[in-house]
């Protein structure tokens, strides 16, 4: 949007066809909301400091800004700014209108307000249904990590077989000791995997009564392990859709769950229900 000079030059070097033609009468859509009498105006600006407006159709509103091109950049700092600006608008929409139906970043409708209205009309029932399903609910994300050093220490002290193998190692000659070490390592690995599966199951059992839906996320996200802290291993990560009134209970439950050695939990939110949003035609 702003610094179009240098990136644009770089684009031209690329031979592939690219969506460079301007979008006619574009509306960048952040999210959809349910409009009530109490709805307040959104006070923040959007991506690139653009003015945020709402396109209303019946009782559904699309939070948009006017734009003429897709947002595309190879500049990470720029991308971060866009994402944070996008997220800020969605958060603000949540404040003003209640749980929004978040639209994927960089979705732009062509053809102005009327085009957006027509689209809302053609999906009206479904949108209504989704907005009421998500009402007063948010997405939270729970990451479960183990701290291998502590985790293993605990397994080692608890398992009699491991202790026996260790004792045997000490009493053996070099050749046999090597085999026993292998056996020891295998046993430790198995126990560790078992323990991780147990913890994961237990976590899911603990939180399910408090949430509406749970979606286990692939342990490798599209951004893989960016969020695994050093010296930790990820056991699992889940996205949950929960009533906002359950947030504290959920936090307490996780707090209790993490009261054991060798595991850590990361709990983020509240997010607009991105993971629980549908695909629409």
């Amino acid at each position: 949007m702003t610094d179009s000079d240098s990136p644009a030059e770089r684009i031209e070097q690329a031979p592939e066809e690219k969506h460079t033609e301007p979008i006619s009468n574009g509306r960048y859509v952040y999210c959809l909301v349910h409009i009530t009498d109490q709805s307040e105006q959104i006070a923040v600006t959007g991506i690139g400091d653009s003015e945020i407006t709402i396109i209303e159709h019946r009782d559904i509103g699309a939070i948009v800004h006017h734009c003429e091109e897709l947002y595309d950049t190879d500049d990470l700092t720029q991308l971060k700014q866009w994402l944070l600006a996008h997220q800020r608008v969605v958060d603000e929409a949540n404040q003003s209108y209640g749980t929004p139906l978040p639209i994927r970043f960089d979705t732009i409708f062509e053809g102005g307000d009327s085009s957006v209205k027509r689209w809302i009309e053609s999906h009206y029932d479904r949108l209504q249904e989704e907005l009421s399903r998500l009402k007063n609910r948010s997405e939270y994300r729970v990451h479960l990590f183990s701290v291998p050093s502590k985790f293993e220490k605990q397994i080692k002290t608890e398992d009699a077989e491991l202790q026996r193998l260790q004792q045997q190692q000490q009493d053996s000659a070099a050749g046999k000791r090597f085999l026993l070490e292998k056996k020891y390592d295998n046993r430790l690995r198995e126990l560790k995997q078992d323990r991780q599966s147990e913890l994961k199951e237990e976590l899911l059992e603990n939180i399910s009564p408090l949430v509406e839906e749970i979606v286990e996320q692939e342990s490798q996200s599209s951004l893989q392990d960016d969020t695994v802290p050093e010296n930790k291993e990820r056991i699992t990560r889940v996205a949950v859709l929960a009533d906002e009134s359950q947030e504290t209970a959920l936090g307490d439950q996780l707090d209790e769950f993490v009261e054991r050695d060798g595991i850590e939990i990361r709990f983020t939110g509240p997010w607009a229900p991105y993971t629980f949003s549908p695909e629409l035609g």
């Binding site: 969506h19 994927r104 960089d106 979705t107």
Partner: peptide
């Protein structure tokens, strides 16, 4: 994540 709009009128990076 988030709603994916597959309509012809919508342009998206995705």
């Amino acid at each position: 994540k988030g709603v994916v709009v597959n309509a012809d009128i919508a342009v998206s990076v995705g």
